Amino acid sequence: NITNLCPFDEVFNATRFASVYAWNRKRISNCVADYSVLYNLAPFFTFKCYGVSPTKLNDLCFTNVYADSFVIRGDEVRQIAPGQTGNIADYNYKLPDDFTGCVIAWNSNKLDSKVSGNYNYLYRLFRKSNLKPFERDISTEIYQAGNKPCNGVAGFNCYFPLRSYSFRPTYGVGHQPYRVVVLSFELLHAPATVCGPKKST
């Protein structure tokens, strides 16, 4: 009989979030998941669920729940959905087409922007091929755009693959930082360890 609440607040209220290319994953298990708490945590810009209804979450049980978190800019949030393409979905964080879970995003301009520009958040701009779903690539190998090998040196047709967002508070919403948490629900042929409040007794 599990009584402890799932530590969603640790994920959502973390002081620092990860850069999207090096997104963070927390496995959540053996706890009571009260998803209604999430609705009250922040004024969400996005709370979209796929393959599951957000209002039914509190009635369900899962084997595992994974919470992935990272920062992107406002106009990239739409890429965090099944079947999307674009720089983020292709080279940084890719959801599977049959994704079961929820994408939660909110504006973090007050936390993640600086007047002089916050350069701490990076994204991958160049990659030889698209990522597979939930693949994480943290390599910093020089990207070869031409025929000549780069031998690890940046220059003509040889690019450092990561680029930094420079978040400034005066930017338009599309270029402001957004914190994203992706909850993916895993149903294996194994005992369910993460249940809503109704199912945990």
Results as ranks from 00 to 15, higher is better:
Tyr50Arg: 04
Val115Arg: 12
Arg136Ser: 06
Tyr66Trp: 13
Glu76Leu: 04
Leu125Glu: 01
Gly83Met: 11
Lys198Asp: 14
Glu10Thr: 10
Arg168Met: 04
Ser69Val: 04
Trp23Glu: 00
Ala89Pro: 08
Glu76His: 09
Tyr39Phe: 15
Tyr66Gln: 09
Asn24Ala: 11
Leu41Glu: 10
Asn107Gln: 04
Phe47Asn: 07
Glu141Ser: 11
Pro82Arg: 03
Tyr159Phe: 02
Asp34Tyr: 06
Tyr91Leu: 08
Leu162Thr: 05
Phe99Ser: 01
Asn118Cys: 03
Cys195Thr: 08
Ser19Glu: 02
Leu60Asn: 10
Leu162Lys: 03
His175Gln: 02
Asp97Gly: 11
Asn147Ala: 07
Ser29Cys: 08
Asn87Pro: 12
Thr201Gly: 14
Val194Arg: 12
Gly86Leu: 01
Val32Ile: 15
Cys102Met: 05
Arg163Glu: 14
Thr15Pro: 13
Arg16Glu: 15
Val52Gly: 06
Thr100Val: 14
Val103Phe: 02
Asn92Trp: 02
Asp68Trp: 04
Thr3Val: 10
Ser69Glu: 03
Asn147His: 07
Thr46Phe: 10
Val103Glu: 00
Phe44Met: 14
Val173Trp: 10
Asp9Leu: 12
Ala18Glu: 10
Ala81Met: 06
Thr46Ile: 13
Ala105Gln: 05
Asn109Val: 07
Asn58Pro: 15
Ser36Leu: 08
Asn157Phe: 03
Gln84Gly: 12
Cys31Thr: 06
Thr100Gln: 12
Gln176Cys: 00
Leu125Arg: 05
Val20Thr: 04
Gly117Asn: 04
Asn109Asp: 04
Leu38Gln: 05
Ala42Asn: 13
Lys56His: 12
Lys148His: 13
Phe156Met: 07
Ser164Met: 06
Gln144Ala: 10
Val20Ala: 07
Tyr50Leu: 02
Val153Cys: 07
Val20His: 00
Leu60Met: 13
Leu183Val: 08
Thr55Trp: 12
Ser164Gly: 06
Gln84Pro: 03
Asn24Arg: 14
Ala22Phe: 09
Val71Thr: 06
Lys114Cys: 08
Ser113His: 01
Pro161Glu: 04
Val32Gln: 11
Asp9Lys: 12
Pro133Ala: 10
Leu57Trp: 09
Thr63Ser: 14
Lys26Arg: 15
Ser29Gln: 13
Cys31Ser: 06
